[in-house]
Design a protein around this nucleic acid. Sequence first.
DNA 1: TAGTAGTTAACAACTCTTGTAGTTTACAGT
DNA 2: ACTGTAAACTACAAGAGTTGTTAACTACTA
Lengths: 156, 156
Amino acid sequence: MPVPATDLITAFRARGMKITPQRQLLCSLIEEAHDHPTVETLHLRAMQKMPTISLKTVYTTLTELAEFGLIRLVPLGTGSLRVDPDPTPHAHLVCRDCGSIIDQPLEPNLAPAPAQAEDLGFIVEERDVIYRGRCAACAKKSAAQISEEGDVGGHA
Amino acid sequence: MPVPATDLITAFRARGMKITPQRQLLCSLIEEAHDHPTVETLHLRAMQKMPTISLKTVYTTLTELAEFGLIRLVPLGTGSLRVDPDPTPHAHLVCRDCGSIIDQPLEPNLAPAPAQAEDLGFIVEERDVIYRGRCAACAKKSAAQISEEGDVGGHA
DNA sequence: TAGTAGTTAACAACTCTTGTAGTTTACAGT
DNA sequence: ACTGTAAACTACAAGAGTTGTTAACTACTA
């Protein structure tokens, strides 16, 4: 359940921040981003509509929205931050090979914070649950490759 | 429960790989590394004993041990990989401010993979559970700072 | 409509990680 | 022990991702 673009815009207005065309564009792109794009990818999409928009502006805007708690900027270990328009708790399946990401509901018996955290005085603000492995397509591809290697000259 | 340094060495030998002084040194440093150091930090420690050891060697050795499944190289979103000598499943508390990391036991009845993963054909190989927030020391510090800001001239 | 504070674009710098090339070295076989 | 060789090492450089700086620009207020 991503936050609608209008609500993202409203968040800037509510904080006395300016509603620039760049922010409007990015907010609508974020609403439509159901594929956890990298920041760079979102920048490329933005440039289709506004060729002069800078990568720095994209980073800045995303960071602001993440601080407002309206999106999530998730470090999934793929080398770059992923933009997640859904700020509500959920897990991620991350493919090692192609980097694709699939949302998953959180295990209901996973506590919002570990029992010992409070004792330690640690204040939990956020939770990431990441399952790494191979998506169906990449698992298939890598299985095919292995059988090909074992089968010397099989396709010659 | 970190893997003993002797077992790490044995793993190299078992694969017909050479037992170099660099690998011996790194294996013993890893065994003692209970603080989830960055690769860079481990490199600095290694240089205390062997000043010419290169960062590249450290990366290479750690990557190998991680592929053997004897350590974990965990991307915790702190900007750099963390070395975890314990390859068994556990969660991590990560402090946003100082980057310190505390191990936590995983809920024992937590499924190793989400229910939908199998249906999707996604093969889960690894799981990261990360709780982000502030450690006791940093929470205290930031609380002190806020009260100071609200209390203008309080210490002048 | 003009002033101004907040934003932006352009550019550079920085951090973390990986690639390349040539030298060195651990180990197997004599 | 000695030597040959494949593996591993160091040094260097490059690549990717992210952040800092600064001058120009512009959305909003009065």
